[in-house]
């Protein structure tokens, strides 16, 4: 019997999925998820990937997005408001400084068709998979 056959009975019978979720839960216990600013999410389908990042308050003009091979790099900076004399910070929790974030993509992308959108402090980069990398259907020649 194949493991994949278990899928037919529903997810609770799939041992691998259980292991995976257990593993994830354990990893969360031992080490809190900490990442470099900005945090990103990566979504992918077979022909397309989307990278989103929460970078509130950055000037979209100053954000630099580049792609080399399968690596997407974001660069930018966010400054603190300068204080005048007699002014003081009571709390300073917001992130500031230079940011450089690299994200490895699951496949090579067609960089000429990449689009980026910055809305409400959320960056969303749409990355179509390179034509040459797309999964190809293999035709069987009749003998």
């Amino acid at each position: 019997m194949l493991w994949s056959e278990l899928e037919r009975f529903g997810r609770f019978l799939d041992p691998w999925r259980e292991f995976e979720s257990m593993n994830r839960a354990l990893a969360r216990l031992s080490a809190p998820v900490t990442v470099e600013f900005p945090a990103v999410n990566l979504w992918a389908s077979e022909e397309h990937a989307v990278v989103t990042a929460e970078i509130p308050g950055i000037d979209p003009e100053s954000l630099d997005i580049s792609i080399v091979d399968k690596t997407l790099t974001l660069r930018g900076a966010r400054r603190l408001e300068e204080l005048k004399e007699g002014e003081a910070y009571h709390r300073r929790e917001r992130w500031h400084g230079q940011l450089t974030k690299m994200v490895e993509l699951p496949f090579a992308v067609d960089s000429s068709r990449v689009q980026a959108r910055f809305l409400k402090g959320v960056l969303s980069v749409s990355l179509p998979r390179a034509e040459a990398e797309k999964p190809r259907k293999i035709v069987i020649n009749p003998s």
Binding site: V33, N41, L42, W43, A44, S45, H48, A49
Partner: peptide, 11 residues
């Protein structure tokens, strides 16, 4: 995104 799988989730 529709029909996409979440591969990496940092936030």
């Amino acid at each position: 995104p529709e029909n996409h799988k979440l591969l990496l989730s940092e936030y």
